[in-house]
Write a protein that binds this DNA or RNA. Structure first.
Lengths: 223, 223
DNA sequence: TATAAAAGTGAGTAATCACTCGCTTTTATG
DNA sequence: CATAAAAGCGAGTGATTACTCACTTTTATA
């Protein structure tokens, strides 16, 4: 009858207990830094606690003084990305973009959104990599990712889209589909920049890619 | 001075030695089937050879009679997806779409392309999941994926795009950006259908999603 | 400065890991 | 039908795994 701990009891609990780095010991910060490095390079399962200890310059026992299991380290690495990023940024940054700029043309809002998210990804490559990697295997992480990042963004952006449709600025399309294409284009830019097409992508700047993408999004590729 | 085996010596070698299932023993087929199941569920690193043997109803020694290492099993699982799928389908299916239908409107060609790829993904969920999961960790797989699937598709689609621009059917945009958006939209559909938004997505059929996506792609969302 | 709590240590542990090897059984071939 | 090769087996291997614990060192507090 014992339910496995749900992501609310599990992952989101970390959110509330989130120490910020200033109240950690030197060694504990080293453990996190080493874990991020190794997890990003070889994945969670392929990184041993012995390696982490060595990389962090710490005895193996010290790790378990701070984290009661190896998986705890993963959650401690991943939770801040999810929270400090997703939640506050989406709820604050994005809310700002939408509220303060809701009167701006949709294209400009989306461009600003893309700019914001692209910078975010660039500045936190490793953490995001770990987050996505492990989302494949740990349903709790996947669900937390969808519940915090995706659902919020979806609700907010769809609302904006519907307002812009009512205002006659956008064609009367299903907001679900519009949101999907808006998000797809963002994911596509990240994907091309980071993994698929580094050379060709590098030929254009981020700003040019954004402008092109928004142009296509608004006006289509047809003549 | 020993270079690690490149993906050509490693992965693509499997392509040529690819047994088809008919010339495998019952047990060997069971090993592959069990591996696909476990790798898809918990990932390569988290699946032990003991588990695979148990799931396949086989002695652990039997596994190593057929595959000289655990990683060999992964490559044997992944190579067929890469080759039987990517290469032939892209070089045959896609080439068919492009050649036989090049005179059709771009929208119809892309719709056909989306239909084709969406079915492919649906029919091979597990294998694709494993392929993507492990592409994070194994550079050889990632490179093979990009080299075989991505580069071919990119060259072919960009050529079509440029032809359609010359024919005056599409706006004169950089083909790189157009290709990126075309591919992004496909990835977006897959992502929404399979993981992000199962409920909302289910409200529309694949065919409707494709039609909407192509409409937006061609005509944009602006009024 | 005395004292307790917190942080750090590293040898030790049972379990599990991928893989081997000597053996038996099944299959193919002439 | 004889014989060899291929397939299958499972106990056994040393290495590695995440984690513990008795102990020492550092830090905070009164």
């Amino acid at each position: 009858m014992n339910k496995p701990p749900s992501f609310e009891e599990g992952l989101l609990q970390y959110v509330e207990e989130l120490k910020d780095e200033s109240e950690m010991t030197e060694k504990q910060r080293n453990i996190l830094r080493a874990s991020v490095k190794l997890f990003a390079e070889k994945g969670f399962h392929a990184s041993s606690t012995a390696e982490i200890a060595k990389e962090a310059g710490v005895a193996e026992g010290t790790i378990f003084r701070h984290y009661k299991s190896k998986k705890d380290i993963l959650l401690a690495v991943v939770a801040p990305v999810l929270v400090k990023f997703a939640a506050p940024f989406i709820l604050k940054d994005l809310r700002e973009i939408f509220r303060e700029q809701a009167q701006k043309p949709f294209g400009e809002i989306v461009a600003e959104l893309y700019r914001n998210r692209l910078n975010l990804v660039g500045a936190n490559e490793k953490h995001i990599r770990i987050l996505l990697q492990e989302a494949f295997f740990h349903p709790e992480i996947r669900e937390a990712l969808i519940a915090t990042v995706f659902e919020d963004a979806k609700a907010m952006v769809q609302k904006l889209i519907e307002a812009k449709i009512d205002a006659g600025e956008l064609r009367p399309l299903p907001s679900q589909a519009v949101f999907r294409v808006v998000l797809s284009s963002l994911i596509g830019m990240v994907l091309f920049r980071q993994v698929l097409d580094k050379e060709d992508y590098a030929y254009y700047s981020d700003e040019e890619q954004i402008a092109l993408t928004v142009d296509i999004l608004l006006n289509g590729i047809g003549k």
